[in-house]
Simulated scan of single mutants.
Amino acid sequence: MNKKIVHPEFAERMGQACEGNPNIPSKNYGRLLWFKEQLETRFGTVVTQETVRKWFAGEVYPRKQKLIQIAQIMQVDDAWLALGRANAVPEKERKVQNAAASGVVNLIAGLIQICGGTPSFPDKPGKVDLNAIIKGALYSFNITTGVEKDGEVRFAVPVDAREAVVLGVIYLGDLNFQVFELDWSTIESVGERKSGHWIVKLSDADWRRVTTFAERL
C-alpha cells in the first residue's frame, strides 16, 4: 500500500535543509539514524527512526517543540521550515536567533557584555556559537546546554568544535544557572563519542566553574 504524502512542501524543505548542511549525512548513508540520535543527545527527545522517516517523507508533521529542535539541528529558521517563510524580524535579530540554541548563547553574550567584554555572533551558526573579546583576548565559544537524563546532567559537544572554548550551561530554575568550562583534554578522555558529538556528564570530572567574564579564561 502506498504511503500518503500529506505534507509534500514540508518534506521538500526538509530535504533542502539537509542538502545545504555539510554536517548532515547523505540520504542513504545514515541520515535517519543520525537525526534520531541528535534529537536524543542534544535535547533529550526520544523518537523512533520510523518517525523520522515519516517526517522526511511528508507523511506526518512534527509537533512544534520537535520542529524547533529539528530546525536547530539543521541550522535553519524554524518559521521557514514550518511554513516556507522566514520570521519577519530584522536581520541583526535573526542572526541572534539562528546562533542561539535554547537561549544560552544569548545568555552568555549578555553576561560577557555586562562584564565589560565585547561579544559578536558569527555570520553562520556552526561549531562556533559566539565570539568575544575579553580583556583584549579573542575567544571563540561553543556553548552547550546540560540535559538531565537518568539522573545525570549530560552535555553534547560537537567533535569538530575542537578549536573553540566549550561552555556547558545548566539551568537550575528561578533564573539560576551555572556555567562550566569543558576542557578538551577531559572531554576526549572521559567522553563517549556518538553521532559526531562527545557526550560528557557533569559528574565525569571536576569541570572548572565560570563565575565571571571580567577576566580572561
Rank of each mutant, 00 (worst) to 15 (best):
V6I: 15
F10K: 02
E12H: 10
E12K: 14
R13T: 04
R13H: 04
R13P: 04
M14W: 01
A17R: 08
P22C: 03
P22T: 10
N23Y: 10
N23K: 11
P25S: 08
S26Y: 07
G30E: 12
R31F: 10
L32N: 10
Q38S: 11
Q38I: 02
L39V: 06
F43L: 07
W55G: 05
G58S: 02
A71P: 06
Q72A: 10
D78R: 08
A79K: 07
W80F: 09
L83Q: 07
G103C: 09
G103K: 06
V105L: 08
I108M: 04
S120R: 14
A132C: 10
I134K: 07
F141C: 02
T144S: 06
T144M: 02
T144R: 02
T145S: 13
T145M: 15
G146P: 04
G146R: 00
E148I: 14
E148L: 14
E152V: 15
F155P: 03
V159G: 03
E163T: 11
G168C: 00
I170P: 00
L175Y: 11
F180L: 03
T186S: 00
E188A: 04
V190W: 00
G191Y: 01
E192T: 12
R193I: 10
R193E: 14
S195K: 05
K201S: 15
L202W: 01
D204Q: 00
R208E: 15
R209G: 07
V210W: 00
T211L: 08
T212G: 05
T212E: 12
F213S: 02
A214W: 06
